[in-house]
């Protein structure tokens, strides 16, 4: 579903042992060539991408939980099928992305273990709860909407396997976003209670969604390496502004009020929003969001309770292999 805007790339070039190869590598990037798995790349490029792609994959998998929370309670069979298919898509995205990360040399198992142990991050947005059916609409409309803003530029990322994965992911995300918006339209045309449910969900999700784009540019400790390597093409604030400008008319169409009374449109047509409470963001990132513990606990439980199944599959595969070998030897 989403990759957190990364501001902490391993940007120094200390890992580059071969200055000539590094120059050649940069020249390829400057020429908009795609870097492929078997190509030479600086260690820091590999490390930055492994972290970014795997965080993205973890976000897809953890992101299944808040939406999965409503599959069994979806209010019509059509909505139930759409939601189940959507959450299944997220799982598929997780699978592609782990596969893309594996091309850089770290196995899925290692990457998943880092997430389960709490060492690797996933998107903070999934540490908020889905309390009503309107949250499912809002997550599709805003969270997927923000994810698309972040991810469209990644379709042109310099690393080939990631860029190609993102093309497919973005197509599905944009479908999810429309689906979410359609849920909101239905609620806003519905009863007073449904409309209130939609308004309340927007109020709870608005600020956390703006935080999805990462810290403000001026506070960012970001070296410009990710930009130089064409992993990142727009700054956090640029993407956030684009998202706000696209979303305000949608909220107006729905007849919903964005919970920012100070918001106003400037002469350039951009919607200026009030300051974001970065303390909340830092707290969620530090593990203190409303659902951090629940999300990790759910993933760990699935992993631990599934261990005997994975062991059985391995044991069976091994037995079958041995039988084949024994037969061949006869």
């Amino acid at each position: 579903m989403y990759t957190q805007a990364l501001n902490s790339s391993d940007g120094d070039d200390r890992g580059i042992e071969d200055a000539a190869r590094a120059a050649q590598f940069q020249a390829r990037i400057d020429d908009d060539e795609r870097i492929e798995a078997n190509d030479w790349m600086p260690a820091a490029y590999r490390k930055t991408l492994t972290r970014q792609i795997s965080q993205h994959a973890h976000s897809e998998i953890v992101g299944m939980l808040p939406e999965g929370n409503w599959i069994t309670r979806a209010p019509s069979l059509r909505r139930k099928a759409a939601l189940l298919a959507k959450v299944q898509d997220e799982c598929g995205h997780g699978l592609y992305l782990y596969a893309a990360a594996e091309t850089l040399g770290t196995s899925r198992e290692e990457l998943v273990d880092l997430m389960l142990s709490g060492k690797a991050k996933y998107s903070s947005i999934f540490n908020y709860p889905t309390l009503t059916w309107a949250d499912i609409g809002t997550v599709g409309w805003l969270v997927d909407g923000a994810a698309i803003m972040n991810q469209i530029p990644l379709c042109r990322c310099s690393y080939g396997p990631y860029a190609r994965a993102m093309i497919r992911v973005c197509k599905e995300e944009s479908f999810h976003q429309r689906q979410g918006f359609e849920i909101m339209v239905t609620l806003c045309r519905g009863t007073e209670e449904q409309k209130a449910m939609a308004q309340n969900a927007l109020e709870r999700w608005w600020w956390p969604v703006l935080m999805m784009f990462g810290p403000p540019d001026k506070a960012s400790q970001h070296s410009d390496t990710s930009t130089k390597w064409k992993i990142k093409r727009f700054s956090n604030d640029e993407l956030r502004q684009k998202f706000v400008d696209a979303t305000v008319p949608q909220a107006q169409y729905l007849g919903l009020t964005i919970p920012d009374p100070g918001m106003k449109q400037n002469a350039n047509g951009n919607w200026e929003y009030s300051p974001i409470d970065w303390e909340e963001f830092n707290q969620v990132l530090a593990g203190n969001g409303p659902c951090n513990r629940d999300r990790l606990a759910a993933r760990r439980k699935a992993h631990e309770e599934g261990a005997w199944v994975r062991e059985a599959a391995m044991a069976y595969a091994e037995k079958r292999e041995n039988r084949k070998l024994a037969q061949a030897a006869e």
Partner: peptide, 19 residues
């Protein structure tokens, strides 16, 4: 089957059960 979604023993099985 949909109750498993997000909780299966492996991602491949999450996909299969949802399917």
């Amino acid at each position: 089957l949909s109750e498993w979604c997000g909780h299966a023993p492996a991602m491949e099985e999450d996909m299969a059960l949802a399917n």
